[in-house]
Amino acid sequence: MIIFILAVFTVALGSYWSGMEDYGSESSSPSDSRPQVHEGNKTNDSGKILTPVTVVIFVIICSVMIVLLYFFYKWLVYLVISIFALAAAVSLFNCLAALVKRIPHWKYKFTFHRRSFEVRLLILAVFCITMSIIWVVFRNDDRWVWILHDCLGVAFCLNFMKTLKMPHFKSCVILLVLLLIYDVFFVFITPFMTKNHESIMVEVAAGSGSTGEKNTGNYLMGLAVEPVAHNEKLPVVIRVPRLVTSVATICRMPFSLLGFGDIIVPGLLVAYCRRFDLQTNTSNIYFISCTLAYAGGMLLTFIALILSTMAQPALLYLVPCTLITCSVIAWRRKEMKMFWAGNGYEVLDGSNEPLTQDDESSWNNERGDG
């Protein structure tokens, strides 16, 4: 239940934040069904848009990285820990700074080398760096550090979803389908290729790689098994201890794990739905429906884990649930062409000119209002 709440909360909040970053609080009357071009709210993160080409490159990098981790885990794990510690501090600062800047008080500033610094943001930066350092020092203390780790992990996922943008549904489909294939391959197919007949995904998640360090118990991808040994573990997961004795006995593991990718990847689609709702004034129907679909996919993952008691790639359930839900809604609303091409977002990236009369006629014809 804790994993479920954390995952759904992170996806919903990260997607909502992504939309607000692009469009602010501006919105037109709900009765106006035409796509709206918000001049002056054009995203400043246009260089961080995931195009189909960058999506393919990203998946290739993920595949190469997991193979390298499998063969060189003992060395690369420290590189991943270092990168996460830095990224977690930055992400936590960005998340908390968005809240701090809304406070109308304590805006004291000082100048240093002709640059102005806000005192409260400097204090916040010190706090975030301290939290990251504490995690690095106590990262293997399973009694309490999982709470700090999960807070940093949620902040990392939120910042990732806010920073990266999917320009259209086409890119979302390519990303989710390729990573679904990636997930299934490294969980179900690789056992036929490894000497110990364990999947590469499970071995890397367990912290053993190809070193031959075996740990007893089941490995539940999405709710993966935490190894008993105190070897270094990859920090790219949400960790929650099993609080129910019967569940811990069945799974023979003290912790449940949910990979960051199982939050971020579907979350990028939910974030696109949120921005599409804002640009077309559709009363958040895509955003709410896709969020509920993600929650449903998580429940299916839990059911599959309980019934099979074996490793399950969470994206196998999350991807169909979210993609099919969005597609059905777009088709029923006769908006599939625009939803697929991301027409409104391309206008934001291309120019600030309002829609022409021909554009309005085309839009109305697509909705059947012309």
Rank of each mutant, 00 (worst) to 15 (best):
L6G: 12
V8E: 04
V8L: 13
L13W: 00
G24S: 05
S27M: 06
S28V: 13
S31F: 13
D32A: 02
D32T: 08
R34W: 05
P35I: 05
Q36H: 15
V37L: 12
G40F: 09
K42L: 06
K42Q: 05
T43Q: 02
D45C: 00
K48P: 00
L50S: 01
P52V: 09
T54L: 08
V56F: 14
V56T: 14
V59C: 02
C62L: 12
C62N: 06
C62E: 13
M65L: 13
V67A: 03
L69M: 15
Y70V: 02
Y70P: 08
F72N: 14
K74R: 14
K74S: 14
K74C: 01
L79R: 01
I81E: 14
S82D: 09
I83D: 10
F84M: 09
A85L: 04
L86D: 00
A88T: 07
V90L: 06
V100K: 07
V100F: 05
P104M: 07
F112N: 07
V119D: 13
V119G: 03
F127W: 10
I134A: 14
D141C: 04
C151G: 13
L152D: 08
G153W: 02
L158Y: 08
N159V: 00
T163D: 07
L164E: 02
F169G: 05
F169D: 01
K170N: 09
S171L: 06
V173C: 03
I174D: 00
L180W: 12
I181N: 03
D183F: 10
V184R: 01
V187K: 08
V187S: 01
M193H: 03
N196D: 12
V202G: 10
V204H: 07
G217S: 02
Y219Q: 11
V225M: 09
V228Y: 14
A229E: 06
K233A: 01
K233T: 02
L234A: 12
L243C: 06
L243M: 15
L243F: 05
S246N: 01
V247G: 00
T249E: 06
I250N: 12
P254I: 14
F255Q: 10
L257R: 07
G261P: 15
I263Y: 00
I264A: 07
P266Q: 04
P266G: 04
G267N: 01
L269K: 04
V270F: 05
V270N: 01
T280N: 15
N281T: 11
F287S: 09
F287N: 07
S289C: 09
T291G: 15
Y294F: 13
A295E: 06
G297N: 06
G297Y: 07
T301R: 02
A304C: 13
L305V: 03
L305G: 10
I306E: 15
I306F: 12
L307G: 02
S308F: 11
S308A: 05
T309Y: 09
P320S: 09
I324G: 10
S327A: 10
V328H: 03
V328R: 04
I329K: 02
R333S: 11
K334H: 14
K334A: 01
F339S: 03
W340I: 11
W340N: 04
G344Y: 03
D349A: 07
D359H: 12
E360P: 00
S361N: 08
N364Q: 09
E366T: 12
